[in-house]
C-alpha cells in the first residue's frame, strides 16, 4: 500500500500536526516521509488475520480512583510557567473573529 507523498499530503499533515515547514523542509519532509513509509510498509505483508490489537502490554483492567476532591487551589502552580498571563488567566491570541 505504498502511498505517494506529494505536496498536498505534506501540507495536510503539517496542518494536522500544527507545524509550518519551510520550502526546503517540505522537500526533505516529503523524502523522509516517503522513506519512512517504504520502511514501514513491509508491515502490510504480515498476516494479522484474527489477531487482536494490543494497546496495553498487560491484561490489567479497571483501575479507578474514588470520587474525592483532594486538590486545593492550584492556580499559582498552574500559571507558574505561562508565557503570558493576566489576573490568573492564560492569555492567548483572540480565538474568535469579531
Amino acid at each position: 500500500m505504498t502511498k505517494k507523498i506529494d505536496d498536498k499530503t505534506i501540507a495536510y499533515v503539517s496542518t494536522l500536526a500544527s507545524l509550518e515547514l519551510l520550502p526546503e523542509e517540505k522537500e526533505s519532509a516529503k523524502k523522509d516521509l516517503s522513506q519512512m513509509l517504504d520502511f514501514v510498509d513491509c508491515l502490510s505483508q504480515l498476516d494479522t488475520e484474527g489477531v487482536s490489537p494490543m494497546s496495553n502490554v498487560f491484561n490489567e483492567v479497571n483501575v479507578f480512583r474514588e470520587d474525592e476532591v483532594v486538590n486545593s487551589d492550584g492556580s499559582e502552580a498552574t500559571l507558574h510557567n505561562a508565557p503570558e498571563k493576566k489576573d490568573r488567566y492564560f492569555v492567548v491570541p483572540k480565538t474568535i473573529e469579531p
Binding site: A17, A29, D32, L43, T48
Partner: peptide, 22 residues
C-alpha cells in the same frame, strides 16, 4: 509528521492498528 500521517483519516487501520496487531 509520521505519527500524524499514520493516524490520519484513512490510514489508521493500515498503520497504527496493524502495528498494534504486530
Amino acid at each position: 509528521m509520521l505519527g500524524s500521517f499514520a493516524l490520519s483519516s484513512g490510514y489508521y487501520e493500515a498503520y497504527y492498528l496493524k502495528a498494534l496487531k504486530a
